[in-house]
Design a protein around this nucleic acid. Structure first.
Lengths: 187, 187
DNA sequence: GTCTATAGCTAGATAGAC
DNA sequence: GTCTATCTAGCTATAGAC
């Protein structure tokens, strides 16, 4: 077989970049092609299911990223809980480019997006919640309390991304991450 | 002149419905036409500037709604502050249909959306913040503290809308509104 | 596996009758 | 002011050469 011009990870990063900035409807195949360095027809060779399949693959790629850089970090009992939290928040800060980027879950949360990818979005968010819930439990919270704190953490992150972009005050995102750390260290 | 078939407010409500559900790129003129009851060409008669102008008009309409149902309510010194807060939160709950609807600011916060409507989005959010800041001051908060609480209120609302839809747990939005009320009554 | 070329369609937008 | 009919550009997707 002829070797792939662009490997999977690079492809995913290109697709992710466009999809989260423009959303599903706003991202054209021309956009996706030029972001990845492949031509439209080549994208169809990799993903016969078209844009829908490309988006599913990106969501899977993101799910793996979350699994590795948030979930695994937060439940790693080899490290003390405060250290785990610090690393996970640093990873989240990097994922969203310090508040400059949009969350892919949110970018796809439109009418058509939720119809097509609702299950994957829910799965990704639940993974987030579960990870922070386990952290809370390790920090001596009761399970219910830990779950509530995890929900609020996700709400803070998503809300701060929107508000900081809307107000054009991107330092707000960092402040919110700081607030999350503080809440957990008070426990 | 021939009478208008659909009056301004009805028109705005129809456009708003589609734009916030599908976003700017996802909302086609056919969608907008059938949601308003006018044909495409008639929409262009009302808005010669096309979809961009329709969206600007909707954002203006929403800004007026916020002015009337949130800003004016929260700064109305004829009523005690806790009552004002309760009414404003009820209005917000209704605006987003108890968490089922998407915020128009967020729906338009994509790459192209922010380029086209960034100023109107920022203005709308600032109005929100200013209203809640004044409420906080009336509740004896220091100005800085009140501003911080207002920011967190907007973050909570936006974040809860995303997370409750993503997790398909719409009761989460109501709980968040309850949490906001609680935070202010503790002050 | 990647490419050029193109099919078939729907998008946003306009012309002109009523 | 609203409509039917239509234009052009761009879209998703495919065919077939290399």
């Amino acid at each position: 077989m002829r070797p792939q011009k662009v490997e999977h990870k690079e492809l995913m990063e290109g697709l992710l970049l466009v999809l989260r900035a423009k959303g599903y409807d706003g991202a054209s195949l021309s956009d996706l092609a030029s972001a990845t360095g492949l031509k439209k027809a080549s994208l169809y060779h990799r993903f016969p299911g078209g844009k829908k399949q490309m988006t599913e693959a990106v969501l899977e790629y993101v799910a793996e990223w979350v699994e590795l850089n948030i979930f695994a970090v937060l439940i790693n009992k080899q490290e003390p809980a405060p250290v785990r939290l610090k690393v996970a928040l640093q990873n989240i800060d990097a994922l969203y480019h310090r508040g400059k980027s949009i969350c892919i879950f949110r970018a796809l949360s439109t009418h058509s997006g939720l119809e097509l990818f609702g299950e994957q979005i829910r799965g990704g968010m639940e993974k987030y919640i579960e990870a922070f819930t386990r952290l809370g439990v390790d920090l001596q919270m009761h399970k219910k309390e830990a779950h509530q704190a995890a929900l609020q953490t996700l709400i803070d992150i998503q809300g701060a991304l929107i508000v900081s972009k809307g107000l054009q005050q991107q330092e707000l995102f960092g402040q919110t991450l700081g607030g999350i750390a503080k809440r957990y260290s008070a426990a």
